[in-house]
Design a protein around this nucleic acid. Structure first.
Lengths: 355, 355
DNA sequence: TTGTACGCGTTATCAC
DNA sequence: GTGATAACGCGTACAA
């Protein structure tokens, strides 16, 4: 959008010797309403000038901006990046352009950004929220703007939601670790209050522990890490090891960032997996699908699949449906997960090998 | 932007008992042009309705969309994600909103996306290109739309450019490896033609090799990998090992994705660093700054710093300057890099330890 | 200090 | 088949 004069529909009309109306009809494919020769005249002029209609004017006139606001909690996380990529295709194909903003896990910033998007007149909102309470968002939804929540949800309101199954993979992981003979399981997490995903995973851990390790206290075995503090993490791992004398403990990491972090800690401590300690967690980043030889694969780390790109794509499609048919009932979509057992938790096999 | 009637400037005017003009003045902070009481009346009404001006109409009227197009080559790469994050702050603070699109390293898609952005009337373009030739982009720049290239450049035209120093870090790396006593250096890269960054790094390797390893052929020692083919990579590593009988070879990886990939391969082959092989490369992802214990740190991998977020921020600021002062001369900005020597290439120290 | 009237580039309605 | 014309919501000469 520049100071230099842009070619408009009137210019085309004048050059083709027709009226704006006819050009507009041409642009919207109403070819049956004009003679073949005017059609081709217009076509030629448009070709020559490579004219493109001003979508701002179209939006103003048509009351639809064809813009979708996307609020993401942490753009640099591979999980979020993959979700965003997943959203792009369906939106662009439907003629919408995403306005992507990054709240950096800051609820206050998130609120401001949502305001910004609203004043830009977006036709809908996909929110991967940093908040757990967000009255503004609820108000917006009530005012009739289609909103889809993505991966994380908010209390006090039933939004359309697309995410992953979080509970059952953790449950199966605990059962698997028990079966392999691990003596103790620690759940290593980032701060999990105010984050529905972490909260559910940690809750699933607590319940599974009660079933498979009846004596253990899930409070004591939940370690809340600061991913920038390496020595703190090492102390937590040491504590877990000390709590399991004569046995081998295992770690369930709450997400991939924590897994990577622990991978570093375990190597720094000179521990061998699974002989000294087990490690497993979600593959939130979808790296299993993308890279054949990520650090998650060698040495193989037991994980369960998450599908961020698919979540994003489904969220976008859900939103598009809401825009097309506003009164359709909304239904949550939860993507299933698959367990991938790898060496980092194959304790029995490793023992047999040594014997 | 919904079917339900939105509150407009006329509504505010009517409610406050003034004209649209006065409200408009209020919105643009021209308080000196109205009496204190009308000002407060307007303020009240706007509060009550939480009215926000329609930015579409503002843009149409003012010939500035306050939108910046961002074309990224690979959104899911941590490097690109960090660049985008860096752009966000300056743009939003200046009142612009980024329209982010992902070309997925596809030049044809890139061209289409740029068209889309132009028809959305963006006020400027930041392009992290997937092409090496792009006449459309050159045409757009010539038509007066401000364009900044980011990290990668295009042939045949002098765009404003923000990127990293690529040549000297590789040179210093080769010198370092020579000094440590590595017998051979292999340059492991993804396809590097049509990618200015990879091309420069590989060229720097060739020149440095000629200086420090006069006999070696840089052609033979350049290995072009497919990051989805693990066995192919392993064969390349084996070839490098075989070419260095009685000595220890080292690998320079062209980027972080390749480094991660090689890390997996080396572990899968059961090799120990630096005893059996050396490994180093750029930290394109800025993980050194972000995570205290990334897999790059344990075991420590020698790397040189790259600053994607800073590149993004500087690119955004450069573009804003171009918008504000169109005729200012454009100057390339190249961010410096720092070498971080870690265990993966400390061959001498490792030998002394063993002795 | 305040208001009127026009134009930004489109599309939809209605008339020819 | 084609074309005036009136919106869409806002900013700004110009007038009062």
């Amino acid at each position: 959008m520049n100071s230099s004069k842009n070619v408009t529909i009137s210019d085309i009309a004048r050059a083709a010797g027709v009226s704006k109306t006819t050009v507009s009809r041409y642009l919207n494919g109403k070819f049956s309403m004009m003679s073949p020769e005017t059609r081709s005249r217009i076509e030629t002029v448009i070709r020559m000038t490579n004219y493109q209609p001003n979508s701002l004017a179209q939006s103003l006139r048509g009351h639809r901006s064809m813009q979708i606001g996307i609020v993401i909690s942490d753009l640099v996380s591979p999980f979020c990046a993959a979700m965003i990529r997943g959203m792009g295709q369906p939106l662009l194909e439907a003629g919408f352009i995403p306005l992507i903003v990054d709240s950096k896990e800051d609820p206050a910033l998130e609120a401001r950004l949502i305001q910004t998007l609203m004043s830009r007149k977006v036709d809908g909102l996909i929110v991967n929220t940093s908040s757990y309470v967000n009255p503004d968002l609820i108000r917006i939804a009530c005012e009739g703007v289609p909103v889809v929540l993505c991966d994380r949800y908010i209390s006090d309101y039933r939004f359309a939601f697309v995410g992953s199954v979080h509970r059952s993979p953790i449950t199966r992981l605990v059962a698997h670790l028990k079966e392999e003979g691990f003596g103790k399981i620690g759940f290593f997490t980032q701060e999990y209050r105010g984050n529905s995903t972490r909260f559910i995973r940690r809750d699933a851990f607590a319940r599974a522990l009660a079933e498979h390790y009846p004596g253990d206290d899930s409070e004591e075995l939940t370690f809340v890490l600061d991913l920038t503090d390496q020595s703190g993490t090492i102390r937590c791992v040491e504590k877990l090891l000390a709590s399991c004398p004569g046995g081998v403990p295992a770690i369930i990491a709450v997400n991939s960032a924590t897994t990577m972090h622990l991978l570093g800690a375990i190597r720094a401590m000179g521990l061998t997996m699974p002989r000294d300690i087990g490690l497993c967690g979600p593959d939130d980043w979808g790296w299993d699908q993308q890279y054949s030889m990520s650090p998650l694969n060698y040495p193989g780390i037991t994980s369960f699949t998450v599908h961020p790109a698919e979540i994003g794509a489904l969220a976008a499609e859900t939103l598009l449906n809401m825009i097309r048919e506003p009164d359709r009932e909304k239904r949550d979509i939860l993507l299933p997960s698959e367990l991938l057992i790898r060496d980092s938790t194959r304790l029995r096999a490793s023992r047999e090998e040594e014997a």
